[in-house]
Design a protein around this nucleic acid. Structure first.
Lengths: 142, 142
DNA sequence: TTAAGTGCAAATTATTTGCAGTAAG
DNA sequence: CTTACTGCAAATAATTTGCACTTAA
């Protein structure tokens, strides 16, 4: 039942960033990039997914591992909410939808965003990134 | 030495939102809108400013008060950083600069931002707001 | 074999809350 | 008067860390 392809992908992803492919890291990596799709997650949600699949990983290790992935540039932190930290396996600059009702982060179609002019960085500074978060609220249907 | 104009402005600001102008609230309000300029702050930074001016306000009250201001629509929460909550007395939708080195939030000139197209809200949702944060990093000068 | 990774439990940080006392309308 | 506000101190939530143990290279 263990998905060899997902595990291989995860292992490659780790080694490409010079991270030691330990059992725990491979398990988490497989969950994140095993199917090649972009994934949005928090430390807690990743921990929950791991537990669901019966993987033995401690919460502290999930936190440490996600931090390591982020430092290695494998995932991108997305700032959307005061308390929790959200991460995205898609590290390219792109806009996000944040579903306020469910506190869920998803990708917004980058090709539908057109920014034709951006405030210049003030003297002595340069632009590190431009974060665009489109906050969504569910329309109540009656 | 007490700035009557600032206090009056603060008091008006509070009553306009049906908030009881208590001594502590008026002091904080005067710090925030006393000079009519927009202000960016965190609970901690506002607490520090209050202490600096010799105002007797507890940290818990600063937190509660800022939350009350936010709920009343007097200030806007700006999500820029995982840990702390930032607030802005300018409640109009406008872009921000976030100085990563100092963890400081400032306004970006709204007239220099031109978004000509925005991803449509998915079925069943509507756009609550579009947050644009331009992250700045200081250019090291040698 | 050895430096890096793991997993507890305890520490830390930002924030909220319970509750007794205080003050505004 | 009476309801809301204040201020402690304790509670909470997300995350990090110290340290002994384990494991990949």
């Amino acid at each position: 039942m263990t998905d060899t392809l997902a595990i291989n992908r995860g292992t490659q992803w780790l080694t490409s960033a010079d991270l030691r492919p330990t059992r725990q890291r491979v398990a988490l990596a497989a969950l994140l990039v095993g199917d090649g799709k972009d994934r949005h997650f928090t430390a807690e949600s990743l921990f929950a997914s791991a537990k669901e699949r019966g993987e033995a990983v401690s919460l502290a290790t999930v936190y440490n591992t996600v931090r390591a992935f982020c430092d290695a540039g494998l995932v991108q932190e997305v700032t959307v909410e005061g308390s929790k930290s959200y991460f995205d396996t898609n590290t390219h600059d792109h806009p996000h939808f944040f579903w306020e009702d469910d506190q869920v982060l998803t990708d917004a179609p980058a090709e539908e965003l057109e920014i034709t002019r951006i405030p210049a960085a003030p003297e002595g500074a340069e632009i590190a990134s431009v974060d665009v978060v489109i906050r969504l609220r569910k329309t109540q249907r009656q």
